[in-house]
Amino acid sequence: MDDGNEIEIRDLNLWYGDNHALKDVNLDIRKNRITALIGPSGCGKSTFLRCINRMNDLIEGVKIKGEVLLNGENIYKKDVDVVALRKRIGQVFQKPNPFPMSIYDNVAYGPRIHGVGKKELDGVVEKSLKDAALWREVSDRLEGAALDLSGGQQQRLCIARALAIRPDVILFDEPCSALDPISTHKIEDLLQELKKKYTIVIVTHNMQQAARVSDYTGFFLLGEMIEFNRTRVLFENPEMEQTEDYITGRFG
């Protein structure tokens, strides 16, 4: 396993109009590791995540300064192909958002768009569903509507859909917050499998979850990265007082 940095964030600042939502954020995201982002609501975790795949470009009035280096290349350079970038950095959203089409078509959506041929498609779909630990539950109903799946299954389908485009990095924004404990558990197990092949960044409100699944954790507060460390260290021996207050629930 390579231990280099997949992504390096340098002095990242972001404004929504006058709202300075990210302030001088610096962070290294290691290859094939799970990096968790925690912090109170509204501190900018989702905003930060959207900076990594440039989904903030879609929001009107956003201004970004600083650098996000993906394998050393600044993704905010002028001539960067955003479409190609998003193919390398997949995202799984907070609320499962499968498309209103069949399970098969959902997973095949990305590969089709990126020109994978008909012959290979079956294989890609099967592999992605297997990697997302959903294959056994849906292999006999691939043509069924994705929206008929349970919430947990829908979320794993969204993971399969993201895997199907063979990204290097997958961003998860509170992927379990709409799910029951069993589905949550399945996805946490899945993350451990996925990190063998992918670099993972996950935003979560659940501190136990961050402690359980991640290798590194960053603590955000009011748009600033307060502390970043190995997960074990950050939770057992935080350097900053604010971090300690937050993880012990004394915050506020």
Binding site: N53, M55, L58, V83, A84, L85, R86, K87, G90, Q91, F93, K95, N97, P98, F99, P100, Y109, G110, I113, H114, C158, R161, A162, I165
Partner: peptide, 22 residues
């Protein structure tokens, strides 16, 4: 739903592909 559009764009679909296919 906006989430369909975001889901598609986040997978590297262009605006045109998202419009046509989703």
């Amino acid at each position: 739903p906006k989430s369909f559009k975001l889901g598609s764009l986040a997978m590297g679909a262009t605006n045109w592909q998202t419009l046509r296919k989703i």
